[in-house]
Amino acid sequence: MKVLVVDDSKLARLSLIKTLKEYEPSAEIFEAENGAIGVEFFKAEHPRVVFLDLTMPVMDGYEALKLMIEIDPKAQVVVVSADIQTQAQARVLSLGAKLMVPKPINSEKMLAVLQQLVF
């Protein structure tokens, strides 16, 4: 299973991948440090799941999300963000995100996310 993790923080990616591997040890993981690189990987690798941060340099998560859904409307994008205002949540869901989870992600949150995804 291919998974794409997009976050400008190396350690946020590391932490997310660590919790993901607890449940999906065999996942093939691609990392991107901003939205633009994320979209490139998305086109090339067609990942089953994308974990996407919102506040990033170069191209933010909103823009990346929009492009990914344009490329594949059935893409499973999970927005992982520190912005937990209801407005931000409503906006990403309307853009086609599957789920939104507040940062930081931990084991319980990861399990709840994985249970709602289709593999």
Partner: peptide, 14 residues
């Protein structure tokens, strides 16, 4: 610095 920035992001979200 990366950690501090990420923690700050989370704190700002709060």
């Amino acid at each position: 610095l990366d950690i501090l920035k990420e923690l700050m992001n989370i704190a700002m979200g709060n």
